Amino acid sequence: MRRPVVGTAIGLGAALLLTAGMTTASATPPTPASARTVQHPVLVDCVWHQRFRPTDFLLACGDGNSVLTGMRWTQWNDRTAVGHGVNAVNDCKPNCAAGTFRKYPVTVRLDRPTAWTKHPNVEQFTRLSLNYSGAKPAGYTQVMNYPLWN
């Protein structure tokens, strides 16, 4: 029994494209470290995405009860990043499912950049500090420091 010509042509075309893609990728030499574009450190989010100057950032990955919103960054360089925004925190009263998100103005500082374990050629900030300019959530201090995941 003869095979259909169209199916064979599609299969051969797909194999040719796959081979061309693999050949191109393997034939391209890696970029030397000295020639790479200098990138500023990034903020890594809960799902391991690199974030640069994000306007929103989830702080409480497990339950979503604390998030930074409306962020405006005034500084972002190789050593630190500084921005202003709002920390929306669930008061969990009477419980977290029925709680209310309260908004608190904050200054955010990122620092302690280090190589990201998942992508060693990328630096990530490893500490986030929140400075509450007025009211703060119950149980919080005026300045809260958080280690960031790596």
Results as ranks from 00 to 15, higher is better:
residue 108 V to G: 00
residue 23 T to Y: 03
residue 19 T to V: 14
residue 13 G to Y: 10
residue 27 A to N: 12
residue 25 A to Y: 02
residue 10 I to D: 10
residue 59 L to D: 08
residue 134 G to K: 05
residue 24 T to N: 06
residue 78 D to W: 08
residue 114 T to E: 15
residue 74 T to D: 15
residue 23 T to H: 00
residue 149 W to S: 09
residue 72 R to I: 11
residue 1 M to L: 11
residue 57 F to N: 05
residue 56 D to A: 05
residue 39 Q to N: 07
residue 18 L to T: 03
residue 29 P to N: 06
residue 50 Q to A: 14
residue 67 V to M: 13
residue 90 N to G: 08
residue 70 G to A: 10
residue 10 I to Q: 02
residue 55 T to C: 02
residue 126 T to E: 08
residue 67 V to E: 15
residue 36 R to T: 07
residue 75 Q to I: 09
residue 12 L to S: 04
residue 8 T to Y: 04
residue 24 T to C: 09
residue 43 L to D: 09
residue 79 R to N: 09
residue 120 P to K: 15
residue 6 V to N: 04
residue 102 R to H: 01
residue 34 S to I: 09
residue 79 R to I: 11
residue 117 T to V: 08
residue 148 L to V: 15
residue 8 T to A: 03
residue 47 V to H: 07
residue 76 W to D: 01
residue 15 A to S: 04
residue 117 T to A: 11
residue 2 R to G: 03
residue 89 V to F: 11
residue 10 I to L: 13
residue 30 P to I: 14
residue 83 G to R: 06
residue 89 V to G: 00
residue 138 A to E: 08
residue 150 N to C: 06
residue 131 N to M: 13
residue 29 P to I: 03
residue 63 D to G: 00
residue 52 F to C: 10
residue 112 R to T: 05
residue 128 L to N: 08
residue 83 G to V: 00
residue 121 N to Y: 13
residue 15 A to W: 10
residue 141 T to E: 03
residue 16 L to P: 11
residue 98 A to C: 02
residue 61 C to H: 07
residue 69 T to F: 01
residue 76 W to G: 14
residue 15 A to P: 11
residue 47 V to W: 14
residue 144 M to H: 03
residue 103 K to P: 13
residue 9 A to C: 10
residue 42 V to F: 14
residue 86 V to T: 15
residue 135 A to S: 15
residue 36 R to E: 09
residue 80 T to W: 03
residue 88 A to K: 06
residue 12 L to R: 00
residue 94 P to F: 03
residue 40 H to M: 13
residue 86 V to H: 03
residue 103 K to S: 15
residue 122 V to C: 08
residue 61 C to K: 01
residue 50 Q to Y: 13
residue 147 P to F: 14
residue 135 A to D: 15
residue 26 S to M: 01
residue 144 M to Q: 08
residue 145 N to K: 01
residue 69 T to K: 12
residue 149 W to T: 04
residue 46 C to P: 04
residue 90 N to Q: 00
residue 142 Q to V: 12
residue 115 A to R: 12
residue 149 W to K: 07
residue 134 G to I: 05
residue 69 T to M: 13
residue 94 P to N: 01
residue 125 F to Q: 12
residue 122 V to M: 15
residue 103 K to H: 13
residue 29 P to Y: 05
residue 82 V to I: 14
residue 6 V to D: 09
residue 113 P to K: 09
residue 66 S to M: 09
residue 128 L to E: 10
residue 130 L to S: 01
residue 99 G to C: 06
residue 5 V to N: 07
residue 138 A to P: 01
residue 18 L to E: 05
residue 105 P to G: 10
residue 65 N to M: 07
residue 37 T to Y: 02
residue 97 A to K: 14
residue 108 V to A: 03
residue 111 D to Q: 14
residue 123 E to N: 14
residue 11 G to V: 03
residue 96 C to S: 15
residue 31 T to Y: 02
residue 3 R to Y: 12
residue 58 L to H: 07
residue 141 T to R: 13
residue 60 A to C: 00
